Simulated scan of single mutants.
Amino acid sequence: MNYESYTASELAADPYFVQWVKQPDNESDVFWSEWLLHHFDKKETVEEARQMVLLLQFNWDSNTEERVDDLWQRISATNRVSGKPAEQVLLTPTTEDRHSWYNWSGVAASILIIALLSALIFLSQRTVKINEPEQNQELAATDRLIRYQTGAGEIKTLTLPDGSEVVLNANSTLTFKPQWGFDREVWLSGEAYFSVKKIAGASKRNSGMAKFTVQTSSLQVQVIGTAFNVSDRRQQAVVVLNSGSIKLQLPSDTTILMEPGELVTYEREQQKLVKKEVKPETYSAWKNSEWILDNLTLEELAARIEETYSVKVEIRNQQHSNGGISGVVPTKNLNILLEALATTLKVKVTRTQNKVIIE
């Protein structure tokens, strides 16, 4: 077979190529490895075709060139409208896909979302640079306070006066005094990941290590030198400790000591506190422009989308709320994320300027 003139869509519809992607054996591995050695310029075409096959893995027997082209056009359309939120964007699975939704299990959806989202990012060929603190940011400075703010979908890394590093999540604000002494203090609204530098005491009165304090509307976090994540949204504070040790000070003057791998959730209105062991990297993955979802409901995912992208999410069909969603979700582009959800969960997603409807 002469594959030199094949496009990615044609390769993805070729039975022998599909078999190699889904059920490789020694013969097909040897063939395609040698073919790529002699046609190195086709490497990107082969990779695009391979990713498209993976996107259609639950419809293997019906991989036609028309279906592959349709998928490619939908992804391309998503990228074209990216950056134009005022337009209405429809992200809808095909009739055949919608019909097969009811045969899916929650486990299948969890497995597919990982491959699907990774493929969408590859195919979109989009790169989004994380803004450095001195670029493209709203920074307010007075004689008394410095304030860093992020907008919808933005992630920013900044260095504090003592050399500590902070990654500020979307729709968040960090405020601090321009001059720091022994006591280092910041005020956080939203979410941030802190890597705190150990600083020795600078006075006879304070001969130990310089204290670092994060103030939120719900609680106070006191550290010396450590790495941790703090979220203060929706009347709830969540603190996850990656390394070192921290002390939480609640409004009731209750003090809680945390060890690495622990999470503390505090709800202000109910004054309810929960402490448990978790995988810290799950809660700080956002600083790498991705979310690690661990059996999240659609409502929980919708809330996270609202917090990050400043949009309102409405779920009109509650039958889609059943079951958990797991996987790694890239978060640099909201349109790509929504396209992935529409294809994976077999739902219709409509986006306008500041509203997303799932039905």
Rank of each mutant, 00 (worst) to 15 (best):
T95V: 14
R144I: 10
I121R: 01
D162R: 09
Q149I: 12
T175G: 08
Q125C: 05
L123F: 08
P93T: 13
A119T: 01
K156L: 10
E132Q: 04
R80P: 03
L158P: 12
G151Q: 06
E138T: 04
E132A: 10
D162H: 05
E87M: 13
S124K: 05
K129N: 12
D162E: 15
T173L: 10
R80F: 05
V107D: 14
S82G: 09
I114W: 15
A119D: 02
G151N: 13
G163A: 09
V128Q: 02
E87C: 11
A109N: 13
R147E: 11
Q125F: 01
I121Y: 00
E96Y: 14
I111C: 02
Y102E: 11
T173C: 10
I130L: 13
G151A: 04
F122Y: 08
T78G: 13
L158E: 03
T78H: 01
W104N: 00
L168P: 01
S172D: 07
T157I: 09
R98S: 05
L160T: 13
I146K: 03
L112T: 01
L120P: 00
E138S: 15
L139P: 04
T94A: 04
T159D: 14
T142V: 09
T92P: 07
Q137D: 07
P161D: 05
S124L: 06
E96M: 13
I146F: 08
A109Y: 15
T175D: 04
P133I: 01
F176S: 00
R147H: 14
Q137Y: 02
T150K: 04
D162C: 15
L120K: 00
I121K: 01
A86M: 10
G83R: 09
R98M: 09
E132C: 03
V89T: 02
P85I: 14
V166E: 08
T94L: 06
N79P: 03
T78C: 08
T175C: 07
A140L: 04
A86K: 11
A108N: 08
S105T: 02
E87K: 14
T142G: 11
E132M: 09
A115P: 00
V107F: 10
K129P: 03
L90D: 12
G83S: 10
T159W: 05
E96H: 02
E87R: 03
L112C: 13
S118W: 00
L112N: 02
S172M: 06
V167D: 02
R144H: 06
N79I: 13
E138V: 09
V81S: 14
T94N: 08
Y102P: 07
S164A: 10
G163V: 09
Q135P: 09
L174D: 03
T78W: 01
G153Y: 08
K177F: 00
L112H: 15
T78I: 13
A140D: 13
H99D: 12
V107A: 05
Q135G: 09
G106V: 01
